[in-house]
Every structure is written in C-alpha cells, then in structure tokens.
C-alpha cells in the first residue's frame, strides 16, 4: 500500500474523503495529500495511536502542519524497538509519486508511553479530534482492554469495525456518540465501498473547509 495507490483505489471506490492513519506515524501524510489532490479526494491527515494501555485511538487533524507537529511529539514516545521487516513488513516514507524518501527504523506497531488521558490532551493541544478505534474488536479495542468506554473521556465519536453489534454496544455502554464505520484497511482490497456517510456543510467549497468541519464534528 502506497499513498498513490491508496488514493487511486479510493477514487475507483467513489470515496470523496479519505484519512490516512498509519500506526503511530503521520510521515506519509505529505505524500498522501499530493496523491489525493491528484484524484480530487479530500485528504485527512491522521494516525492510529497506540496508548500505553495498548488501546488504539484514531487521531485526525484539520491541517497537514498540525499533523506533522503532532507526529514529531509522538515519535520519541514510541517504545524503542527496531523494526524487523521480515516479520512486520517495510516501513517506508515516500513522496507523492511513491518514490522512497526514507525507511522508518522504529517499529511503529508498538505502543507509546502515553496513557489515554495524556494522549487526548496532546491531540487536543495540536487541534485534532480523537476517538477510540474499532471498539467492537477484541484486539486493541477500548472495551476489550478497559472493559468499557469510560464516561470520563467524554468522547464525541467512536469507531466500529462494522455496525453489526453497534446498537447493542452503544446500549450496553450507555453511549450517545457519533458512530463511524471505517475500513481500517491494511491492504488495498479492504478499502470500503462508499457506503458510510457524514453530512458536512461544505460551502464555499474547499478541501480545507471540509477537513475543518469534519474535525469540529468529531472532536470532544
């Protein structure tokens, strides 16, 4: 998966807005912006952040600059283990034409040393939106790890892997949140069709406005 072929596949699927959320990294977001712009897709820069509790949080930013500044804060907080490409795959940073710029040496799938509270605070200091990822999944979902989505976190949004158990989980947890169903695609074939929608006011239309409205909608 590269930024250019992700954008190309998303275009074929008819997606109009697309977020790149690599594990603990935003470093391919500059290339992702270029690739999405070429296909007329609104790019949203972000990260799937792993907290100290091994919980995955989706983090999205209104601008590339905020995302990259956040990335610089996160990178030194990743538990320092070197990637082994034969096990975990290559961690490439590329440009908008998929040319290799650098290879990320730190294993990105690892946890950071930020607990959920600290992670939320840091995301919001950089102007982003944060919500728990795939809360319906047994691995790295907040409910699996903490037993609940604690009310204290005041999340406005939650993400599901699919909506099969959404109503039951929302009722059990007493959650009144915006629910997102994201493909969480780790290969091109798993990028969802355009079947989930959010209503965003987009006049006068610009990609930056759509991103800003999206973050406003999803943030706490």
């Amino acid at each position: 998966m590269t930024p250019a072929n992700i954008a190309g596949m998303a275009s074929l699927k008819g997606l109009t807005l697309l977020a790149l959320t690599d594990h603990n990294s935003c470093r391919n977001c500059p290339a992702f912006f270029e690739a999405c712009n070429a296909f007329g897709i609104v790019p949203v820069p972000g990260m799937e952040l792993t907290t100290a509790e091994d919980i995955h949080l989706v983090v999205l930013f209104p601008t590339l600059e905020q995302a990259m500044a956040f990335d610089a804060q996160i990178h030194p907080r990743i538990i320092p283990v070197k990637n082994r490409p034969e096990i975990f795959g290559n961690q490439w940073v590329v440009d908008g034409d998929d040319n290799l710029l650098e290879t990320e040496e730190t294993l990105l799938i690892n946890a950071t040393d930020l607990d959920v509270d600290s992670a939320i605070e840091l995301v919001e200091r950089y102007g982003g939106a944060v919500y728990p990822a795939h809360i319906d999944r047994p691995s790295n979902g907040m409910i699996a790890i903490l037993g609940s989505v604690p009310k204290d976190y005041r999340f406005r949004s939650v993400e599901f892997n699919d909506f099969e158990q959404r109503d039951r989980i929302l009722a059990e947890q007493g959650l009144d949140c915006i629910t997102l169903c994201s493909s969480d695609a780790h290969d091109l074939g798993r990028i969802n069709e355009a079947e989930h929608f959010l209503d965003l006011e987009d006049e006068p239309y610009s990609s930056a406005l759509v991103r800003r409205r999206l973050i406003e909608l999803l943030k706490r």
Partner: peptide, 10 residues
C-alpha cells in the same frame, strides 16, 4: 501491569 483507573472498577 494495567493501571488505568478502570482497574478500580474491575
């Protein structure tokens, strides 16, 4: 080793 506040609830 979990120290999130939910350990108290559990």
């Amino acid at each position: 080793i979990m120290t999130n506040r939910n350990i108290i609830a559990v």
